[in-house]
Structures are given as structure tokens and as C-alpha cells.
């Protein structure tokens, strides 16, 4: 079954109201890293109709990803950018989705994120997280970054929180549960942290959208 753009828009407005949906439609969000955090954030934002999504990852789907990432057996071996775009378009075929199958580094940040307003840091390696946060805050004046640190293991749901570090830098997670300390990454707790990231992004889109 296929629905028209108008039908989908009407359904979204019924849930969110016209006023809110307009702000979500205008949203330009990049998701850097499409693992447990990024794939969850992208699906959540696609469901509520955030208009412009920019998906960035250099890697392919591996069988060990399926314990927490939004992919299925049939996606194993595909580039995550392609596998995720395919799923988001199943949810809403009228979203503007840009993909870049590249490795993010200090040198390509300026060009890669030029058109995005909010950047979701969803990498796995701490050095990559620090590189992106420092790069975005150092190379741009206006863009906001929502980052995550500390979501390994299970239990202690309420220790995962969202903290405002500066006007442009927010941090989600418990800030201590390191995946390298023998704690595995599991769908429920990574999902809680990803939910924090996605929910904050929505808040920024709606509240900042009201100022325009």
C-alpha cells in the first residue's frame, strides 16, 4: 500500500499539530555514525517527519550489529547508509534523505556538515566523538551538536541523562559506562541513550523553530 505525500502529512499533523509539524518539516539534521545510536535516532526522526536527514557512515552492516542496531538479516553486508535509507523511505518515502558513505575527519567536517543545522554525534570510538564535537564547535559558529557518552551494559536506566554543556553542545548518557570495560552494548540501554539524543533534537527543532 502506498500513501500520497498529502495523506502522510495529514496523519503527522493529526498527531503533532500543523504548527509543530511545520517546524519538524524544516528540520535539517545530520546523524554521524549509523550504529546503535545513530540508526535509532534516524528512525525516530524519520517517523515524526523531520524533513531533511543527512546520514553519514563508512561501514557495512555486520551480523554482530543486529543486537542493537536498526537493521535486519537481509541488510548484512550492505553499507549502513543504503540499508538505513531504504528503511526510512519505507516509513516515509517523501523525506529528503542525503547519505554520505565516508569516514568523518577533522578535514572534511566543514564541507560535510555545511547544510545541517543540528548534528547528532553517534560514533562508537571516544576519539571520534571528541574529534567531531571539537570540530563542529570549532569550525562553525551556529550549528548545534548533540553527543552521547556512556550507554554500555544494562540496568540503571535513570543514570542516563541529558546535560547542556554550552548553548551549542549537549551530552547524553551516564558518561561512565565504557563499552571497553567488558560491558557489552545492548539494544535497550543504547536505545535509552539514543532516545535522549533524538528527544533533545526534537526539542531544539521545535523550540528554535518557534523563534524564527
Amino acid at each position: 500500500m502506498r500513501f500520497s505525500k498529502e495523506e502522510i502529512q495529514e496523519a503527522l499533523c493529526l498527531r503533532h499539530t500543523h504548527e509543530i509539524q511545520e517546524r519538524l518539516d524544516r528540520g535539517r539534521v545530520a546523524v554521524a555514525g549509523l550504529g546503535g545510536l545513530g540508526s535509532f535516532v534516524a528512525v525516530a526522526l524519520a517517523r515524526i517527519g523531520v524533513g531533511h536527514l543527512h546520514l553519514i557512515d563508512h561501514d557495512q552492516v555486520d551480523l554482530t550489529n543486529l543486537n542493537r542496531q536498526q537493521y535486519c538479516m537481509g541488510h548484512v553486508g550492505m553499507y549502513k547508509t543504503d540499508a538505513l535509507r531504504e528503511q526510512l523511505l519505507e516509513i516515509n518515502p517523501y523525506l529528503d534523505i542525503r547519505t554520505d558513505c565516508v569516514r568523518v575527519c577533522e578535514e572534511n567536517i566543514r564541507e560535510l556538515f555545511a547544510e545541517d543545522d543540528i548534528i547528532c554525534e553517534a560514533f562508537d570510538v571516544p576519539e571520534s566523538k571528541a574529534m567531531l564535537v571539537n570540530g563542529v564547535l570549532g569550525q562553525f559558529e551556529e550549528k548545534k551538536i548533540v553527543s552521547a557518552s556512556g550507554m554500555a551494559g544494562y540496568g540503571n536506566s535513570n543514570e542516563i541523562r541529558t546535560r547542556k554543556i554550552t548553548d551549542r553542545f549537549y551530552l547524553c548518557g551516564d558518561e561512565v559506562s565504557d563499552s571497553r570495560n567488558g560491558l557489552g552494548l545492548m539494544a535497550p540501554r543504547v536505545g535509552i541513550c539514543a532516545g535522549h539524543e533524538a528527544n533533545l533534537i526534537v526539542q531544539l527543532l521545535i523550540d528554535d523553530g518557534a523563534e524564527r
Partner: peptide, 8 residues
């Protein structure tokens, strides 16, 4: 000072 830990 934000110290990042691994996982994503």
C-alpha cells in the same frame, strides 16, 4: 571537561 567513553 567532558571525557568521552566508548560505545554507540
Amino acid at each position: 571537561i567532558v571525557s568521552f567513553v566508548g560505545g554507540g
